[in-house]
Protein backbone atom coordinates (compact mmCIF):
# COMPACT_ATOMS: atom_id res chain seq x y z
CA UNK A 1 0.00 0.00 0.00
CA UNK A 2 1.40 3.44 -0.90
CA UNK A 3 2.24 5.84 1.89
CA UNK A 4 0.17 9.01 1.80
CA UNK A 5 1.96 10.62 4.75
CA UNK A 6 5.67 10.21 5.32
CA UNK A 7 7.31 11.82 8.33
CA UNK A 8 11.06 11.54 8.70
CA UNK A 9 13.23 12.62 11.66
CA UNK A 10 11.05 15.58 12.51
CA UNK A 11 12.26 18.14 15.02
CA UNK A 12 10.46 21.23 16.24
CA UNK A 13 11.31 23.67 18.98
CA UNK A 14 9.94 27.01 20.13
CA UNK A 15 11.80 29.77 21.85
CA UNK A 16 10.16 30.77 25.07
CA UNK A 17 11.54 33.52 27.26
CA UNK A 18 14.88 33.35 25.47
CA UNK A 19 15.15 29.55 25.91
CA UNK A 20 14.65 26.92 23.22
CA UNK A 21 11.94 24.50 24.15
CA UNK A 22 12.05 21.27 22.10
CA UNK A 23 8.50 20.12 21.47
CA UNK A 24 9.18 17.28 19.05
CA UNK A 25 12.34 15.27 18.49
CA UNK A 26 13.15 12.41 16.12
CA UNK A 27 9.65 11.69 14.91
CA UNK A 28 9.45 9.31 11.97
CA UNK A 29 6.47 7.34 10.76
CA UNK A 30 4.43 6.67 7.64
CA UNK A 31 0.69 6.36 7.12
CA UNK A 32 -0.54 4.06 4.34
CA UNK A 33 -3.26 5.38 2.08
CA UNK A 34 -6.82 4.60 3.12
CA UNK A 35 -5.96 3.72 6.73
CA UNK A 36 -6.91 5.34 10.02
CA UNK A 37 -4.15 6.57 12.31
CA UNK A 38 -4.32 7.93 15.84
CA UNK A 39 -1.76 10.11 17.58
CA UNK A 40 -2.19 9.91 21.33
CA UNK A 41 -0.35 11.21 24.33
CA UNK A 42 -0.81 13.29 27.45
CA UNK A 43 -1.22 17.07 27.40
CA UNK A 44 1.96 18.83 26.24
CA UNK A 45 3.32 15.72 24.54
CA UNK A 46 3.42 17.53 21.17
CA UNK A 47 0.38 15.91 19.48
CA UNK A 48 -1.11 19.08 18.08
CA UNK A 49 2.28 20.41 17.03
CA UNK A 50 2.83 17.20 15.09
CA UNK A 51 -0.57 17.52 13.44
CA UNK A 52 0.21 21.12 12.44
CA UNK A 53 3.49 20.04 10.86
CA UNK A 54 1.89 17.09 9.03
CA UNK A 55 -0.80 19.35 7.57
CA UNK A 56 1.71 21.98 6.47
CA UNK A 57 0.35 24.57 8.87
CA UNK A 58 3.81 25.00 10.35
CA UNK A 59 7.37 24.25 9.30
CA UNK A 60 9.79 21.94 11.19
CA UNK A 61 13.30 22.87 12.35
CA UNK A 62 14.56 19.77 10.62
CA UNK A 63 13.26 16.61 9.06
CA UNK A 64 10.76 16.20 6.25
CA UNK A 65 7.04 15.74 5.81
CA UNK A 66 5.64 14.33 2.57
CA UNK A 67 1.92 14.56 1.94
CA UNK A 68 0.53 12.83 -1.15
CA UNK A 69 4.09 12.49 -2.44
CA UNK A 70 4.78 16.21 -2.11
CA UNK A 71 7.63 17.35 0.15
CA UNK A 72 6.07 20.18 2.17
CA UNK A 73 9.49 21.77 2.77
CA UNK A 74 9.84 22.47 -0.96
CA UNK A 75 6.55 24.38 -1.16
CA UNK A 76 5.82 28.03 -0.40
CA UNK A 77 3.14 28.93 2.11
CA UNK A 78 0.60 29.55 -0.66
CA UNK A 79 1.50 26.30 -2.40
CA UNK A 80 1.01 24.43 0.85
CA UNK A 81 -2.39 26.17 1.15
CA UNK A 82 -3.31 25.00 -2.34
CA UNK A 83 -2.23 21.47 -1.47
CA UNK A 84 -4.44 21.53 1.62
CA UNK A 85 -7.30 22.79 -0.46
CA UNK A 86 -7.02 19.94 -2.95
CA UNK A 87 -5.92 16.98 -0.88
CA UNK A 88 -6.47 17.69 2.81
CA UNK A 89 -9.49 17.97 5.09
CA UNK A 90 -9.62 19.23 8.68
CA UNK A 91 -11.69 18.75 11.80
CA UNK A 92 -10.89 20.81 14.89
CA UNK A 93 -11.72 20.59 18.54
CA UNK A 94 -13.25 24.11 18.41
CA UNK A 95 -15.05 23.38 15.12
CA UNK A 96 -13.44 26.47 13.54
CA UNK A 97 -16.38 27.40 11.36
CA UNK A 98 -16.34 30.84 9.78
CA UNK A 99 -18.75 32.64 12.16
CA UNK A 100 -20.06 35.11 9.59
CA UNK A 101 -20.96 32.46 7.03
CA UNK A 102 -24.02 30.16 7.07
CA UNK A 103 -23.64 26.39 7.39
CA UNK A 104 -24.08 25.98 3.64
CA UNK A 105 -21.52 28.67 2.84
CA UNK A 106 -19.04 27.19 5.30
CA UNK A 107 -19.25 23.82 3.56
CA UNK A 108 -19.02 25.44 0.12
CA UNK A 109 -15.81 27.38 0.78
CA UNK A 110 -13.25 24.58 0.05
CA UNK A 111 -15.01 23.82 -3.23
CA UNK A 112 -15.35 27.46 -4.17
CA UNK A 113 -11.64 27.91 -3.59
CA UNK A 114 -11.12 25.25 -6.25
CA UNK A 115 -13.36 27.19 -8.60
CA UNK A 116 -15.92 24.36 -8.50
CA UNK A 117 -19.18 25.50 -10.07
CA UNK A 118 -21.68 23.27 -8.29
CA UNK A 119 -20.30 24.02 -4.82
CA UNK A 120 -23.70 24.91 -3.34
CA UNK A 121 -25.36 21.72 -4.46
CA UNK A 122 -22.54 19.50 -3.25
CA UNK A 123 -22.53 21.32 0.09
CA UNK A 124 -26.27 20.85 0.44
CA UNK A 125 -25.93 17.09 -0.22
CA UNK A 126 -23.17 16.85 2.37
CA UNK A 127 -25.23 18.71 4.97
CA UNK A 128 -28.07 16.31 4.25
CA UNK A 129 -25.69 13.41 4.88
CA UNK A 130 -24.73 14.78 8.29
CA UNK A 131 -28.41 15.32 9.10
CA UNK A 132 -28.48 19.11 8.84
CA UNK A 133 -30.63 19.61 5.73
CA UNK A 134 -32.86 21.99 7.68
CA UNK A 135 -29.99 24.01 9.08
CA UNK A 136 -28.32 25.15 5.86
CA UNK A 137 -28.99 28.88 6.38
CA UNK A 138 -28.14 28.95 10.06
CA UNK A 139 -25.06 30.74 11.31
CA UNK A 140 -22.66 28.81 13.58
CA UNK A 141 -23.84 30.80 16.59
CA UNK A 142 -27.36 29.49 15.95
CA UNK A 143 -26.22 25.84 16.06
CA UNK A 144 -25.41 23.56 18.99
CA UNK A 145 -21.86 22.24 19.49
CA UNK A 146 -22.73 18.86 17.96
CA UNK A 147 -24.38 20.51 14.98
CA UNK A 148 -21.38 22.77 14.46
CA UNK A 149 -19.05 19.79 14.46
CA UNK A 150 -21.29 18.04 11.93
CA UNK A 151 -21.07 21.10 9.67
CA UNK A 152 -17.29 20.91 10.11
CA UNK A 153 -17.44 17.24 9.08
CA UNK A 154 -19.39 18.09 5.96
CA UNK A 155 -16.85 20.82 5.17
CA UNK A 156 -13.93 18.45 5.76
CA UNK A 157 -15.26 16.02 3.16
CA UNK A 158 -16.43 18.67 0.69
CA UNK A 159 -13.24 18.72 -1.37
CA UNK A 160 -13.03 14.90 -1.37
CA UNK A 161 -9.70 14.97 0.48
CA UNK A 162 -7.12 12.21 0.24
CA UNK A 163 -6.18 12.70 3.86
CA UNK A 164 -8.16 14.11 6.76
CA UNK A 165 -6.64 15.50 9.96
CA UNK A 166 -8.83 15.60 13.05
CA UNK A 167 -7.64 17.41 16.16
CA UNK A 168 -9.50 16.20 19.26
CA UNK A 169 -12.80 16.08 17.31
CA UNK A 170 -14.83 15.28 20.42
CA UNK A 171 -12.91 17.44 22.87
CA UNK A 172 -15.66 20.09 23.14
CA UNK A 173 -18.66 17.74 23.03
CA UNK A 174 -20.51 15.76 25.66
CA UNK A 175 -20.10 11.97 25.57
CA UNK A 176 -23.27 11.16 23.68
CA UNK A 177 -22.87 13.86 21.05
CA UNK A 178 -19.17 13.07 20.74
CA UNK A 179 -20.02 9.44 20.04
CA UNK A 180 -22.48 10.40 17.31
CA UNK A 181 -19.93 12.67 15.67
CA UNK A 182 -17.22 9.99 15.79
CA UNK A 183 -19.57 7.42 14.26
CA UNK A 184 -20.38 9.86 11.51
CA UNK A 185 -16.71 10.63 10.96
CA UNK A 186 -15.79 6.98 10.55
CA UNK A 187 -18.81 6.27 8.33
CA UNK A 188 -18.04 9.14 6.00
CA UNK A 189 -14.39 8.24 5.99
CA UNK A 190 -15.10 4.68 5.05
CA UNK A 191 -17.47 5.79 2.32
CA UNK A 192 -14.94 8.20 0.84
CA UNK A 193 -11.91 5.96 1.34
CA UNK A 194 -10.00 8.82 2.95
CA UNK A 195 -6.93 8.41 5.12
CA UNK A 196 -7.77 9.61 8.62
CA UNK A 197 -5.24 11.00 11.10
CA UNK A 198 -6.76 11.73 14.51
CA UNK A 199 -5.07 13.50 17.38
CA UNK A 200 -6.76 12.56 20.64
CA UNK A 201 -6.22 11.70 24.24
CA UNK A 202 -9.37 9.58 24.18
CA UNK A 203 -8.10 5.99 24.06
CA UNK A 204 -11.61 4.70 23.21
CA UNK A 205 -11.47 6.70 20.03
CA UNK A 206 -7.85 5.85 19.30
CA UNK A 207 -8.58 2.17 19.51
CA UNK A 208 -11.02 2.47 16.60
CA UNK A 209 -8.05 3.34 14.37
CA UNK A 210 -5.82 0.94 12.43
CA UNK A 211 -2.65 2.23 14.08
CA UNK A 212 -1.74 4.32 17.10
CA UNK A 213 1.29 6.54 17.58
CA UNK A 214 2.09 7.33 21.21
CA UNK A 215 3.89 10.52 22.05
CA UNK A 216 5.48 11.43 25.34
CA UNK A 217 7.57 14.52 26.03
CA UNK A 218 7.93 15.17 22.33
CA UNK A 219 9.30 11.72 21.52
CA UNK A 220 7.44 8.80 20.03
CA UNK A 221 6.98 5.50 21.70
CA UNK A 222 6.76 2.43 19.44
CA UNK A 223 3.73 2.50 17.11
CA UNK A 224 1.21 -0.20 17.93
CA UNK A 225 -1.66 -2.00 16.26
CA UNK A 226 -4.69 -1.45 18.48
CA UNK A 227 -6.84 -4.32 19.48
CA UNK A 228 -10.09 -3.31 17.81
CA UNK A 229 -13.21 -3.62 19.92
Amino acid sequence: MSKILNVDRLRKSYSSGGNDLTVLEGISFAVPSGTTFAIVGPSGSGKTTLLGLCAGLDTPDSGTVEVCGQDLGSLTEDQRAALRNEKVGFIFQNFQLLPTLTALENVSVPLELQGFRGAGETARTLLQKVGLADRTHHYPSQLSGGEQQRVALARAFANRPEILFADEPTGNLDGHTGQRVVDLLFDLNQEAGTTLVIVTHDMELARRCDRILRLQGGRMLEPEEPSKP
Binding site: Q79, A82, E86, T100
Partner: peptide, 28 residues
Protein backbone atom coordinates in the same frame (compact mmCIF):
# COMPACT_ATOMS: atom_id res chain seq x y z
CA UNK B 1 1.09 18.24 -8.75
CA UNK B 2 0.56 20.79 -11.46
CA UNK B 3 2.02 24.20 -10.71
CA UNK B 4 -1.25 26.06 -11.30
CA UNK B 5 -3.08 23.90 -8.84
CA UNK B 6 -0.72 24.72 -6.01
CA UNK B 7 -1.01 28.44 -6.64
CA UNK B 8 -4.51 28.48 -5.26
CA UNK B 9 -5.68 30.81 -8.00
CA UNK B 10 -8.67 28.98 -9.23
CA UNK B 11 -11.21 30.89 -7.19
CA UNK B 12 -11.72 34.05 -9.23
CA UNK B 13 -12.20 37.68 -8.32
CA UNK B 14 -15.95 37.17 -8.03
CA UNK B 15 -15.36 34.73 -5.17
CA UNK B 16 -13.32 37.38 -3.35
CA UNK B 17 -16.21 39.81 -3.67
CA UNK B 18 -18.67 37.13 -2.56
CA UNK B 19 -16.60 36.32 0.50
CA UNK B 20 -16.17 40.02 1.31
CA UNK B 21 -19.95 40.42 1.17
CA UNK B 22 -20.67 37.23 3.14
CA UNK B 23 -18.33 38.24 5.90
CA UNK B 24 -19.30 41.90 5.81
CA UNK B 25 -23.10 41.57 5.86
CA UNK B 26 -23.10 40.17 9.39
CA UNK B 27 -21.29 43.20 10.70
CA UNK B 28 -23.00 45.81 8.50
Amino acid sequence: MKQNSVNGKRAGISWLFRMAWRDGRAGL
